[in-house]
Design a protein around this nucleic acid. Structure first.
Lengths: 224, 224
DNA sequence: TGTCGCGCTATACGCTCGTATAGTATCCTG
DNA sequence: CAGGATACTATACGAGCGTATAGCGCGACA
């Protein structure tokens, strides 16, 4: 099926698959080589160390996402769609790898790119608001992006809770309905939110006031 | 510091720490034993295989969470707080392990317990709604729980986006403000949501209609 | 007081991994 | 056609892993 690809590309694809399925640690160069139909030595020949192979995978995905973004920007028809849903659909077979890379803390450029998209998406929502957001848009976009990715990252748990695999067509539809419902109904009333904000500020003030004497005692203990 | 604990308990704590910090695969029995101040052989003596040690860690945390829940239920003062925030604070030092266990797909009981708490929390929000939720509460609670956990799981990325470590006091405050803002302001207008729901249903209908002829052609191809 | 059980250590085995090296075939270039 | 780079393989090495086993010290109990 992939036999028409370069051996180098086949190795990269196999690595993407294995890293995604079992994780970087459990995936072995020998397994990857076998999947690509080459000898283990060739993996080293093309990519050097295992870590470099992972870096090549990351780079490949970033490039892919970048191309998809440009494409999406060129086509203004899908601007109102959830940016994460779009990326998820596009990343398709690399989804497992993508998820693991995010959790491992690598793939930072991928995450940041999604935040950038989320920011544009949030701008539309902000336009509909009557009051001023209490925090800056980039920060909120970061959190929204993380939250949108959660379902994919915790896929087994969410699927269990929903009773359907979220990657199946039925699960995807159910999930979309849930998301729309959640996104269109505030979990906190405006009043409760104001109280919470105030309570948080009060707590902060109290902490600041308590800090000074605490530091004094700490210094005292050090002297003793 | 932990010298007053049983060697068995010290091993478990060290395992919790190492599994959380570097992950199950990269953590070695020798490292864990050294941290606990015992010989590697004793780890095997008490817990058998490495996988059993992980199971013991899971079990210990489930028990801990269960106790905390009972405690929280007994005290009605904190019913209005975000359930995930409460659990996060309580799990404290085991946070890294907890996160990794969730992502690995293990720790299912932990997740399910949090969903149950989220369900109670959602019930309050539902009472404030004017319209009927389109999906059942358990499903929504599952997604909300996953989303609330996202920030912790993607901590490095979120911290980078916010410019503060979300585990620091300042980061925690900022995060709380963002959460309150997000939870109290719908990202979609009621109208946009209705359109999205309708659009989704239409798409589903179209897919169903297209499915039948596609299946026919598929069968035809098989016959050929 | 003898000895049995248990917590614990020391040491070693076997395996698999990433990596290194030497060598072969293939193709491109002058 | 010569010849070197390049793609690729076979084999081996050394390290680190989880796991197994044999034995030691020490308190409990009869």
């Amino acid at each position: 099926m992939d036999s028409d690809l370069t051996a180098r590309a086949r190795i990269r694809d196999a690595a993407l698959r294995h890293f995604g399925e079992v994780g970087f640690e459990r995936a072995t160069i020998r397994m990857i080589a076998a999947s690509a139909g080459v000898s283990p030595g060739l993996v080293r020949h093309h990519y050097g160390a295992k870590e470099s192979l992972r870096a090549a995978c990351d780079e490949y995905l970033v490039e892919l996402l970048r191309r998809l973004n440009e494409q999406a920007h060129a086509d203004p028809a899908c601007r109102d769609r959830n940016h994460v849903a779009a990326a998820r659909a596009a990343l398709g077979p690399y989804h497992a790898y993508f998820t693991r890379a995010l959790v491992d803390g690598s793939a930072a450029p991928l995450f940041d790119e999604m935040v950038r998209l989320g920011e544009e998406w949030l701008a539309d929502a902000d336009a509909e608001r009557s009051d001023q957001p209490t925090t800056d848009r980039h920060a909120r976009a970061t959190v929204v992006t993380a939250m949108a990715l959660a379902v994919q990252i915790l896929r087994p748990h969410v699927s269990r809770g929903l009773g359907v695999d979220v990657l199946s067509a039925a699960g995807d539809r159910l999930l979309a309905h849930i998301m729309i419902d959640l996104y269109s109904h505030p979990l906190l009333t405006r009043q409760a939110a104001a109280e919470a904000h105030a309570g948080l500020d009060a707590l902060e003030q109290k902490a600041l006031q308590q800090k000074a004497p605490q530091q004094k005692t700490a210094r005292k203990r050090k002297e003793a």
